[in-house]
Write a protein that binds this DNA or RNA. Structure first.
Length: 449
RNA sequence: GCCUCUAUCGUCUAAUGGUUAGGACGCCAGGUUCUCAUCCUGGUAAUCCGGGUUCGAUUCCCGGUGGAGGUGCCA
C-alpha cells in the first residue's frame, strides 16, 4: 500500500443532511484535496429503520450540490456486516471482548431490553491517549471508561465496531469528524489496537451552533443543506462560508475560491471551540457570489425562476440581456428572483400600498403623473437620456413658494407608478427598459389609484 | 454528578511574552445617486474572572465561571 492519505465522510442517512454534518464533509474534502489524497463516502446505514433510499439520495444530492466529489464507489456499511461479526469473533477469541447478559433501558423510548450481548473490554488502569490534529493531545484515565456493547442481543454489531472495522477495511488514515465523537475515540483507539490495526490520525472539528449559541435543531429553520438550496444560496457561497467556520487561512482573506481554500487548508489552523452560524454574513457572502457570477450564468438562473413562476421568458419592453446587470447587482439570494423584477414581465403589476399612499397620494402627484405621461408620449425620442433631461428640467421649475420642485418629488411618484415599488434600478434606466408605451400606460393608470 | 474539550469586538476570526490588539459581517454616521443595491470615507465594539510565573501576561501555569460534547443494546 502507499502512504497516501485517505479520509472518509461517514454519514448515517437519517433524513436530511444537517449543516454540521456537511461541514465535516467539507473539511474532509478540503484536507483530501490539499494532500492529494482520497476522499471516500461511506453510508452508515446499519440497522436503522430510518435509513431509506430517499435519505441516502438526500446525502448524495447535498454532496453533489456542494461539489464534494468522492474518489471511490460509495460503501454501504450494511454490506460489511460479515466483516463486523468476524472482527467480533476475533476480539472474543483474543479476550478483548466477552459475552454477558445485560439489561438496559432505552433513554429515548423507555423500552427495556435484556439479553446476551458482546462487550468490549476496556483497560482498567493506565491512560488512553491519542493525538488530535485539532485538539492536541487527548487523554483519559482508564478508570473513567467502561466496557461497552459491541453486539446487541439481536446479534447486530453496533456503530463502534462497524465504524472501526470499515475504517480498517477502507484504509482510512485520518478520521475527520465532529467533536461529538471525541469520547468515542477513546473506545475506538482501543478497538484498533485490539484488532492489530494501526490507529489512524484524528481531527475533531468544533460543532456549529445556532445564533443563540445552542446546538442546532430542526427548529432553527435553515438547518439542512437542502434548505439553503431552496432559499436561493449558491453552493460556492455556502461552501466558502462553511470553510470559514472553525478555520481561517491566517491572512485576511474571506472570499476564497475552492482552489484557494484547498491550497490554504490545514488542521493546524482549525479552532477547537464551537462556532456560531451567522446567517447575516452568509447572506452578504451569497450576494458577493451572485454579483460575481458571469451574466450568462445569472441569466440562466433568472430564466429558470421566471419559468417556474409562470412568467414570460423575456421582459415586456426589452431584451433579457439588458435587464440582467441592474437586477443581478440587487439580488442577494436567488429566491429574490423573479420577485424583485416582476414588473418587467407582467402588465398587471402589484402596488406596494405604503408606497402608493406616500408617493401617489401626495399633493399634486396625480397631475404630475398625467403630465409626464403626455410629455413622454410626445417625445421624439424616448431614452434614458431624454427622459432624464426632461425630468431634470421639470425639477428646476419653481413651486409657488419659489423653491425648485426637486428631483425627489418627481422621481418617486414616477417610480411607484411604473413599478409599484420604491426601489429598483435607476429610474431612467428603468423607464427605457420598460418601454415608452408601457410607461405612459402605467402613469395614466396610476393616476387613478 | 462525573468525564473530555473550550474561552479575543454582538458574530466569524487574526496576532503577540512588550502592538494604537488587525480584518470581515452586522450596526451607526457622512459622501455619491432619483430610490434600493453597489461604491467611497469614517465610527462603534473584544482579550471571561481571580491568582501565579515574569521587568512585562491577552499570550505560559493553576483555580473559578461560562460554553460545547460525552456519559445508550443511537450514530
Amino acid at each position: 500500500m502507499s502512504d497516501q492519505i485517505r479520509v472518509r465522510f461517514a454519514p448515517s442517512p437519517t433524513g436530511s443532511v444537517h449543516i454540521g454534518n456537511i461541514r465535516a464533509a467539507v473539511f474532509n474534502w478540503l484536507f483530501a484535496r490539499h494532500e492529494g489524497g482520497k476522499f471516500l463516502l461511506r453510508i452508515e446505514d446499519t440497522d436503522l429503520a430510518r435509513s431509506t433510499k430517499e435519505a441516502v439520495d438526500k446525502v448524495l444530492d447535498a454532496m453533489a450540490w456542494l461539489g464534494l466529489d468522492y474518489d471511490e464507489p460509495v460503501v454501504y456499511q450494511t454490506h460489511n456486516a460479515a466483516d463486523h461479526l468476524a472482527a467480533v469473533e476475533r476480539l472474543l477469541s483474543t479476550g478483548h471482548a466477552y459475552k454477558a447478559v445485560k439489561e438496559s433501558v432505552d433513554p429515548a423510548t423507555g423500552e427495556r431490553k435484556s439479553g446476551e450481548v458482546v462487550l468490549f473490554r476496556m483497560p482498567r488502569e493506565g491512560r488512553i491517549e491519542y493525538d488530535d490534529l485539532v485538539k492536541g493531545h487527548m487523554r483519559k484515565k482508564a478508570e473513567d471508561t467502561q466496557d461497552f456493547v459491541i453486539v446487541r442481543s439481536d446479534g447486530s454489531p453496533v456503530f463502534h465496531v462497524a465504524n472501526v472495522v470499515d475504517d480498517i477495511k477502507q484504509g482510512v488514515t485520518h478520521i475527520v469528524r465532529g467533536d461529538d465523537h471525541v469520547e468515542n475515540t477513546f473506545k475506538h483507539v482501543k478497538i484498533f489496537e485490539a484488532l492489530g490495526a494501526p490507529v489512524p490520525k484524528y481531527a475533531h472539528l468544533p460543532m456549529i451552533v445556532n445564533a443563540q449559541g445552542k446546538p442546532y435543531s430542526k427548529r432553527d429553520g435553515a438547518a439542512f443543506v437542502g434548505d439553503f438550496k431552496e432559499r436561493g444560496f449558491l453552493p460556492e457561497a455556502l461552501f466558502n462560508f462553511l470553510a470559514l467556520l472553525g478555520w481561517a487561512p491566517g491572512d485576511d482573506r474571506e472570499i476564497m475560491t475552492r482552489k484557494e481554500l484547498v491550497e490554504a487548508f490545514s488542521f493546524e489552523r482549525c479552532k477547537s471551540s464551537p462556532a456560531r452560524f451567522d446567517l447575516k454574513k452568509l447572506l452578504w457572502m451569497n450576494g458577493e457570489y451572485i454579483a460575481a457570477q458571469p451574466p450568462d450564468v445569472f441569466k440562466a438562473e433568472l430564466s429558470a425562476r421566471l419559468a417556474a413562476a409562470g412568467l414570460p421568458s423575456a421582459p415586456l419592453g426589452c431584451g433579457l440581456d439588458e435587464l440582467v446587470p441592474p437586477v443581478q447587482i440587487r439580488t442577494k439570494t436567488l429566491s429574490d428572483l423573479p420577485g424583485n423584477c416582476e414588473y418587467f414581465f407582467r402588465e398587471d403589476i402589484a402596488y406596494d400600498p405604503a408606497a402608493v399612499e406616500k408617493r401617489l397620494h401626495a399633493p399634486g402627484a396625480k397631475e404630475r403623473l398625467l403630465a409626464f405621461a403626455d410629455a413622454f408620449a410626445a417625445m421624439p425620442d424616448f431614452s434614458a437620456e431624454t427622459t432624464e433631461a426632461l425630468v431634470r428640467a421639470e425639477a428646476e421649475k419653481p413651486t409657488p413658494d419659489g423653491k425648485p420642485v426637486g428631483m425627489g418629488a418627481l422621481v418617486h411618484p414616477i417610480r411607484v407608478a411604473v413599478s409599484g415599488r420604491t426601489e429598483g434600478p435607476g429610474l431612467f434606466e428603468m423607464l427605457a427598459l420598460l418601454g415608452r408605451d408601457r410607461v405612459v400606460r402605467r402613469l395614466r393608470a396610476a393616476a387613478s389609484l
